[in-house]
Amino acid sequence: MSAGENARFDYAEVRPYAVPDDLDELQGPVHGVIVLPHELAWSGRREFDLDDAYDRAALYKIVLEEGGRQDLRRFLNKELLRRHWPDLRPARQVRARWERRFPGLRHAA
């Protein structure tokens, strides 16, 4: 077996996760119930209450991992993201990309 045959492909390592140029782009809601489109919440649940910690973390995880730049702007809020970053559990590649772009998030965690 050659080294190439033994290597495992990990799509998460090469996937083009969206990251904004500036956190000020994130002007999404702070309170209330959000209904995500099927394109983002394709696995089932689509409705999330931003005032509930579990729901908020679930919504942010979905949008961080599945969303494009427009989705980030529409559904994420910069203040909520900063405040709750330590509690969010996106894929490690997503976390690394966001913390590389915004080192202040790393220090919050």
Rank of each mutant, 00 (worst) to 15 (best):
H31M: 01
D22Q: 10
R45E: 11
R45T: 06
G44A: 13
A58P: 06
R83I: 12
E65N: 15
E65H: 15
L36E: 01
D51A: 05
R95N: 03
N77H: 01
I62W: 01
F9G: 09
L88G: 02
A96Y: 11
G4H: 11
A12V: 13
P20F: 06
G104T: 01
L23E: 06
P29I: 04
R92A: 12
Y11L: 14
D22I: 05
L80F: 07
R106W: 06
R89Y: 10
G32L: 07
E99L: 01
F48T: 02
A12H: 14
R56T: 13
V33K: 11
R45F: 03
R15L: 09
A41N: 04
L36T: 01
D24K: 12
V63P: 08
A109F: 00
G67R: 01
A12I: 10
L81S: 00
D87A: 10
Y17G: 10
G4T: 09
G44V: 01
K61L: 03
V33W: 09
G67H: 05
E39Q: 10
Q93T: 03
L36W: 00
H31C: 05
R101F: 02
N77K: 02
R56L: 15
L26Y: 08
P86W: 00
D21C: 04
D24S: 14
R73H: 07
S43E: 13
V63E: 03
G32N: 00
D24R: 13
R56H: 14
G28N: 06
L72F: 12
